[in-house]
Nucleic acid binder design. Structure first.
Lengths: 111, 111
DNA sequence: GTCATATTCAACCTTTCGGTTGACGATCTC
DNA sequence: GAGATCGTCAACCGAAAGGTTGAATATGAC
């Protein structure tokens, strides 16, 4: 079953994991540092990070004996897009937004 | 614990519940009609609807012996706003999006 | 090589989740 | 009132979630 959305929302359903994501918004972090503010075992945090990685909300990269965790925006975007389908009955003109996105993505990057 | 986000994401984590929400996007529905396309008992669907209602993603209103379910946009919006905090480091040109929103909201509707 | 550090693995426990079935209360129809 | 329909409740079940502890595995420092 290829349902990428379920693991994303399931991962976001836990306040500890959302807190971790907020921390990672500031900066990439090592596992031990992620665990520090929480009153639970390192193994528990390690599991939470695994859940986040399975949902592709974060990536982990090993450098030396330290594993660095960083946010991965892709899964956020997919979930966000799905949710915005339910924003349709709010004031933003979605057709206009789509036209905006099209020009936004098709335009050659300037520098 | 007042954590409104956790039940919302937990509710969205189940594909059956997301399918129900998509159906409600079309129109308000009675519980029996919601259950019809699914291969599970009415009681199971009833539980799913309870979860969605607890998360305030839907509201239910009893008229006669029929209970009508309808989407409630507020919880969607709250979750969507939270997620957009993590979309900020994505490639979409946010400044351009803001300009888009501004014209979108300030321009008098043309026809 | 030895010792400390960083992280995961494995086994376990308790609680929650998602489903079932059968009985029940309300409501409409006749 | 009798009978069908709408929806929930209650009890149960197996699987998954979220935590613990203790051992294991890499790696870095000396």
């Amino acid at each position: 079953m290829t349902d990428p959305l379920s693991p994303v929302f399931a991962a976001l359903a836990d306040p500890t994991r959302r807190a971790i994501l907020s921390m990672l918004l500031e900066d990439d972090m090592a596992v031990t540092d992620v665990a520090e503010p929480f009153q639970m075992s390192l193994a528990a945090i390690s599991k939470h990070l695994q859940v986040l990685a399975d949902a592709r909300l974060i990536t982990r990269e090993k450098r030396g004996r330290v594993i660095w965790c960083k946010l991965d925006p892709d899964a956020f975007r997919a979930a966000s897009v799905w949710m915005q389908g339910f924003g349709q009955f709010e004031p933003v003109d979605l057709d206009a937004f789509e036209r905006f996105l099209e020009t936004e993505f098709s335009a050659p990057p300037e520098d």
